[in-house]
Amino acid sequence: MQWKRTDRVQTVDALIAIGASVVDAMTVAMAGKPGRFRTLRVEVGDDWAALFAATVPDAGEPVLPHLAGTMPLYLAARDFWLPVGVTMAVPDHARDPLLRAMFDHYCVAPPAIAVPRFAGGQDSTREADLYLIREPIPFGHFALAGQPGAA
C-alpha cells in the first residue's frame, strides 16, 4: 500500500500518543480535563494509546481534548484511521479491496490505525506502522486501572 501526504483538511476523529513518555503525558493531561472527556474510549498498546472522539450528551458533535504531543487521526475508511494530512495513494474504488488485502497479508483484522513513515521531506511512502484496536475502554476506567506509564 502506498501512502501520500495531502492537505490537512480532514475532520479529527481520534488522537494517538506514540511512545511511553507521550502516553504518560497524555494520561497526566487528561486528569485535568473536564469529566466529559474522560468518558471517551481509549485503546492502550505497549507504548501507545489512541483516544477516540465521541458525542457526549448536549454537545451535539463528537468531542476530543487538546493534548500536546498526540497525533490527530481521521476515519479514512470503515474501522480504519489515518493521520490527518495523509491519504492512501489509490483510487477510491480500489481503496477497500486494497485495505482488505493488506489486512489479510498481515493476518490481522480492523479496526486499526496506520501511521505511515515518511522519511525526510518525502511526500509518499510504502512503510507504515499498524496499531490494532481491540477493546477500547472509557478513559476513566483506564485511568483508574493503571497509572501513567502503565500502558
Partner: peptide, 12 residues
Amino acid sequence: VRLETMLTRIDA
C-alpha cells in the same frame, strides 16, 4: 468541551 475540541481541530 466544544471549545477544546475546536482547538484540537484547528491544531490538527
